[in-house]
């Protein structure tokens, strides 16, 4: 079916799709080339010496040899990044689900102002938040700890999540929950058997988004983590802070983009299955 619809596209449409593909995949090409280069100096368009030509000297691409070795801390950073990302997503959900429910269902004085207030963290520069919080967190003994980093990651993610889940909640007719209660379900049963399953596509999308934001946060992690908590973004920045783009940096950049890619594929499948179960896929 996909090929049939591809053929039915006009030349212009095909050109547009090609352009989109070039823009999305394009930036990765130099990274891949760089990570496989042996020597690549300015102004050469392509590496002057490829790793493959020098495989007698290094049986493994140099960059990847370093990236995969324990000295690079890539493994530790990956585990940290994913761990923090999961924790942030779950906490964010826990905070935002009840908040979104109230924002979507209830009417109270100052609701509009509260909604604006909730998006304020997105307007204030991260550096300002980071420096201010570092002072507070140091006083509290939270700087350089996982707890501190997780809390600080909630700052830019909560506003997005609240907005997303409010929209999702608004799409859920209260009649479903009412009917469940009339049928004898208690609050917990309503939540776990009706509300959450029905909100699942939105919740999943929100959690995925939070995870991606969290795994890409550099500045806040850097400030609060105090260098003792290494994540993929901080590792990458330490490699490229000099302005040069080395082969190892390219390798780390590629590793750093992996969690997002894997999650994207996973969530796409999950959401599609969910949508099918809801009968939307038919």
């Amino acid at each position: 079916m996909a090929s049939a619809s591809l053929r039915s596209l006009t030349f212009g449409q095909k050109l547009l799709i090609l352009a989109v593909l070039a823009f999305t995949i394009g930036p990765f090409a130099p990274l891949i080339i760089q990570s496989l280069a042996f020597r690549w100096a300015w102004p050469d368009l392509l590496p002057s010496v490829w790793w493959l030509e020098q495989r007698q000297i290094s049986p493994f691409p140099l960059a990847w040899d370093y990236v995969l070795s324990p000295t690079s801390k890539v493994l530790e950073a990956t585990v940290n990044t994913i761990g923090i990302g999961v924790a942030v997503s779950l906490l964010c959900l826990l905070i935002c689900l009840p908040a979104a429910r109230v924002l979507a269902r209830a009417n109270f004085r100052g609701k509009k102002r509260l909604e604006f207030f909730l998006s304020l963290p997105l307007l204030v520069p991260e550096a300002a938040i980071g420096i201010a919080l570092l002072m507070i967190f140091t006083g509290l003994g939270l700087s350089g700890t996982y707890v501190g980093v997780i809390i600080v990651h909630l700052i830019p993610t909560v506003p997005y999540m609240v907005r997303m889940l409010t929209a999702v909640y608004q799409g859920l007719d209260q009649g479903f929950e009412d009917n469940a209660r009339v049928l004898g379900a208690n609050d917990w049963q309503v939540l776990t058997r009706v509300t959450l399953p029905m909100l699942m596509p939105g919740v999943l999308a929100g959690a995925l988004f939070t995870f991606l934001v969290s795994t890409n946060l550099f500045l806040l992690t850097f400030f609060i983590g105090q260098g003792s908590i290494v994540t993929l973004p901080t590792l990458l920045f330490s490699q490229i802070s000099g302005g040069a783009m080395g082969a190892t940096a390219a390798g780390i950049a590629l590793v750093a983009s992996l969690p997002g890619l894997i999650l994207l594929v996973l969530s796409d499948r999950l959401i599609r299955e969910e949508a099918f179960a809801l009968g939307i896929g038919e």
Binding site: D173, F176, D178, N179, G184, V194, L278
Partner: peptide, 17 residues
């Protein structure tokens, strides 16, 4: 949930999942 009444509403509200 303890009243043991039955309610059928206009939009049926069958659980879609």
């Amino acid at each position: 949930q303890h009243r043991h009444v039955g309610l059928v509403s206009q939009r049926f509200n069958l659980f879609p999942h």
